[in-house]
Design a protein around this nucleic acid. Sequence first.
DNA 1: GGACACATGTAACGGGTTACATGATTTC
DNA 2: GAAATCATGTAACCCGTTACATGTGTCC
Lengths: 224, 224
Amino acid sequence: MNRKLTTTSYALLTQLALRPWSAYELVQQRVRYFRFVWPKAESAIYREIKKLAEDGLAEMSIEHTGRRPRTIYQITEAGLDVLREWLATPVGPFSMEFEVMLRLFIAPIGTRQQLVANLRQVQADTRDMLMFGGEVNREYLEGRGALQDQAYIRALGIDFFISLLNMVDQWVDRTLGEVERWDDMTIEERNQRGLEILAGVPVAMPEQTSRSTPVAPASQTRRR
Amino acid sequence: MNRKLTTTSYALLTQLALRPWSAYELVQQRVRYFRFVWPKAESAIYREIKKLAEDGLAEMSIEHTGRRPRTIYQITEAGLDVLREWLATPVGPFSMEFEVMLRLFIAPIGTRQQLVANLRQVQADTRDMLMFGGEVNREYLEGRGALQDQAYIRALGIDFFISLLNMVDQWVDRTLGEVERWDDMTIEERNQRGLEILAGVPVAMPEQTSRSTPVAPASQTRRR
DNA sequence: GGACACATGTAACGGGTTACATGATTTC
DNA sequence: GAAATCATGTAACCCGTTACATGTGTCC
């Protein structure tokens, strides 16, 4: 039990703390909900949960469907203790993978059509996810949420999720609008337009009062 | 040259397409900018760039500082071709890691103080990053951006970055406000409040016109 | 009773992270 | 001239991903 747990370990323990699940159910739940805040491949779960059991943080019990076995996992007291300790440690910052931004950065070597297609793809994905978010929202509003007794917590998560998606959706809209005008503009005109956009971005101005800490590229050290 | 390139490979090629860099500079630039859209550990870069050179997608040349060597990398025509091909493939959806959400989900087993501390931490990180974003914004507005001739593209990235951070900042504010009221409420009152929040979330209602495709939990298949 | 989807995982490879190492340059 | 910081990476382990495998209901 002395290996160092990863955030993925804690993510699994978090799921187990809610109620016992079979390994398969764990994976399904995580595909449906947890994927959005801690996305990992499915088969990593099967391996990790076994390790958690070896560490004594979860208990396994075997059930059968016909002659086929399935494993049910349940969190132990030791597991809950470990979770509580984790809550007292500093939390990592959020981070994002956003491939379309990479493609935007080298748009000049590709065609405008490709870039537009990529952006539309992201928009379609985003709207799919928005539909899904709306569905979950209704589930809770109608009292049939998967964890209805924690609606007050889930509501905050759904709020975040929908806010994020709406933000992305709107950004893609704006960006498509800009990209569509590129063809009629010289580079100088485009860059002029770029400066207009930058001037309109709602950035917080640094307080004129002296800041003791320099503006670092975010706190990287604390990150696991 | 027949291995399968990862998105990280393409991210590096994207950087190389802008101009030649030494390995160390590549890492620094990526820490400063690319980290926010494709975050990877630094030492992975040194290994990956060497492989790209082996594959003929980049050229190495050795310089010296005193007796210490440093390697400069430059993209090749083959590398540019590979990048162009990549632009024609479907783009992956965005994804996010957000540890504090995991902690929120099991808040009941911890203390309210811990949760508040975690949320404030995220807020502090977010505001640091906002400061950084504002700094980059000013660099471009004042004509001294690192890639000033691509201001029209960078502006779109900065727009996204600042929008995201503002969204997170506002969400944390709302959420802290909610959490602070928990102590005076019963579980039933909290869940009642949760439903109010959900009712206020701006979800798109599904069009009543028949949708052919079912609302799936986002397109996972296309990923990679 | 064959096809197909759902349930329940295992194996192997390679990318990602953490830890370490050493040469130059600046600071005081 | 010692200490700290910047520059420039390497090594090894472990997690994450991709591919595969097999059993079990269910549809028609």
